[in-house]
């Protein structure tokens, strides 16, 4: 057991280190920050406009329910960040196994006393840690904007929203890791992951056309729906279960696919 932990930590550290040593990762981080900044500005302006509009209507005597501007800002911003991460995360996960296959280092991992599970979990935590680190500077935007608001935004709402983002990222990365284990082309892995995640993102929209049990089932598979739940501050166990299931599924399938690889290698 002790050895297992060592192994898993070794994989985790190596994975994390490879991101910090990779120019591609820095390029992605830069683009991510720029886009996040633009989206934050847009969300901020939008919410302010909305607030002004409500004020205007209230002055002219039209009864419109008032809005909670800081809360709206957080919700809108995290919403667009969710969409943005759909583009960024497949690029982070694309090399997880595809690179190992291409470099031949999978042969090292597969002949070392370490289980496929430990490798997969170590890798997932590594890339997730990198994504979280990459997102930390963005907290500054929120800190500045929400700093002076009165009454202050509930901390639990903020935390839940960010937890949602982390869970979403972990789910996407986990599925992306599985896709990456299927091919030795990183580009293909990124494209397939994006397609898969996009389907899971909008499946709730498709579900509306189905109705019935199938529609319900599809509706509940949607990443968008459950992410929105968390961002709105709704703690729904089913959302947590869904994200946990996606994460587990990704790890499970990765371990299986690496194992299956031994039999089809030819």
């Amino acid at each position: 057991m002790k050895m297992l932990t060592y192994n898993f930590l070794a994989i985790y550290r190596r994975e994390l280190q490879s991101y910090f040593a990779s120019p591609l990762a820095y390029a992605i981080a830069t683009i991510y920050w720029i886009l996040a900044g633009i989206l934050f500005k847009a969300a901020f302006d939008g919410v302010i406009d909305q607030g002004n509009y409500v004020d205007l209507q209230a002055q002219s005597g039209v009864p419109i329910p008032p809005i909670d501007v800081p809360y709206e800002l957080l919700r809108t911003y995290l919403g667009v960040m969710g969409s943005l991460s759909l583009f960024v995360l497949p690029i982070l996960s694309m090399g997880l196994y595809a690179d190992e296959r291409k470099r031949g280092t999978l042969e090292l991992l597969a002949t070392s006393p370490i289980t496929n599970w430990a490798v997969a979990i170590g890798k997932l935590l590594g890339v997730l840690t990198f994504f979280i680190t990459m997102s930390l500077p963005l907290l500054l935007y929120e800190a500045i904007a929400l700093n002076g608001v009165n009454p202050p935004v509930q901390l639990s709402v903020i935390l839940l929203g960010h937890l949602g983002l982390i869970l979403l990222a972990a789910s996407v990365l986990s599925l992306g890791m599985f896709v990456s284990s299927l091919t030795d082309s990183t580009i293909l892995a990124a494209i397939l992951t994006f397609a898969l995640v996009l389907c899971l993102w909008i499946v709730s929209e498709l579900a509306k056309n189905f109705g019935g049990v199938v529609g319900d089932a599809l509706f509940n598979l949607s990443l968008l729906k459950h992410y929105t739940n968390l961002v709105q501050g709704v703690v729904d166990t089913s959302s947590l279960v869904l994200f946990a299931s996606y994460i587990f599924l990704g790890i499970f399938l990765t371990a299986q696919s690496i194992d299956a690889l031994r039999f089809q290698r030819s």
Binding site: Y6, N7, E107, L108, S112, I114
Partner: peptide, 30 residues
Amino acid sequence: RQRIGYLPESPPLYPDMTVEGYLNFVAQIK
């Protein structure tokens, strides 16, 4: 796996690591 050292046909190296860092990694997973 605990009892073998294996050099595959093409050496399984991580190009972005230092020699020492790489050997440390291998020693850990072994």
